[in-house]
């Protein structure tokens, strides 16, 4: 997935100023940056939700020239938050992913997708009655149902996720990040807006750091997540790989590497 010179103007403000970025299949690409730096706007432009100038290629083809159903067959998009208009149950929401593309015939996918996001048994609950984090996982299950196979006929498929772990507890953050990791390992492409720099360092192959509607840095986590770039971008000193003063508890997701998986 490639984006060239993306510019977006919302209302009277220019929100993105000529953004170029590349995400490769087989990798998890994380978009990070301070609040309001334009991460969501970049995703919404590249997925065609808002008008923009520039060009976006997906698997080498210009997305502007493709029909919604063609794109839906190779790309699933999870928005930052979703409100549902009517009292649908969880499984009815997830089933909406079935109506698109190649997975349409496979009617047990919704249940399997819910199992993947650890929501087994939630099938007949009302979506509106779930907590924010549970709703977010339902939406992810819907996207997974739509884009179940990371590769079809040698062509990669894409998961585009806006803050997929933002309101999740740490256990489910791992559940979801493991899922994206697995999807990329099997050949698919993942582009995710991330808030948590630790999880980003742990799971991303590539990091795109945004600031004020521009790309401040992109590269591998160890190239981008340095004292200098982070301090400059976030406007306050952020030392990397430094333990806090003695006696102050701290908790790093990376420490999971030393234990059994959950």
């Amino acid at each position: 997935m490639q984006a060239f010179d993306i510019e977006v103007t919302l209302g009277r403000t220019r929100v993105l100023h000529g953004v170029d970025f590349t995400a490769k299949p087989g990798q998890v690409t994380a978009i990070v940056g301070p609040n309001g730096s334009g991460k969501t706007t970049l995703l919404r432009a590249t997925t065609g939700e808002i008008p923009f100038t520039g060009r976006v290629l997906l698997n080498g083809e210009d997305v502007a020239r493709q029909k919604p159903w063609q794109l839906a067959a190779i790309r699933g998009v999870q928005p930052q938050s979703t409100t549902i208009a009517f009292p649908f149950t969880v499984v009815e929401i997830v089933r909406l992913g079935l109506t698109a593309g190649l997975s349409a015939a496979n009617t047990d996918l919704p249940v399997r997708a819910l199992e993947k996001v650890d929501l087994t048994g939630f099938e007949n609950r009302m979506y509106q009655d779930l907590s924010g984090g549970e709703q977010q996982r339902v939406q992810l299950a819907r996207v997974l149902t739509q884009i179940w196979q990371p590769m079809v006929d040698g062509t990669p498929r894409w998961l585009i996720l806006d803050e997929p772990v933002a309101s999740l507890d740490i256990g489910h953050q791992f559940t979801v990040m493991d899922l994206t990791r697995d999807f990329a390992t099997r050949g698919g492409g993942v582009v995710a807006v991330m808030h948590d720099l630790n999880l980003t360092a742990m799971f991303a192959d590539r990091v795109v750091l945004m600031q004020d509607g521009r790309i401040a840095a992109q590269g591998t986590p160890s190239e981008v997540l340095t004292d200098a770039t982070l301090t400059q971008t976030y406007g306050c000193p952020i030392p990397v790989n430094t333990t806090p003063p003695v006696g102050m508890p701290f908790l790093l997701p990376q420490a999971r590497m030393t234990r059994e998986p959950c």
């Binding site: 919404r44 997925t47 065609g48 939700e49 919604p68 159903w69 794109l71 839906a72 067959a73 790309r75 699933g76 998009v77 928005p79 979703t82 909406l96 992913g97 109506t99 698109a100 593309g101 739509q146």
Partner: peptide
């Protein structure tokens, strides 16, 4: 937006 993304 989401409706468009599922191919509608």
């Amino acid at each position: 937006a989401a409706a468009g993304h599922i191919g509608i």
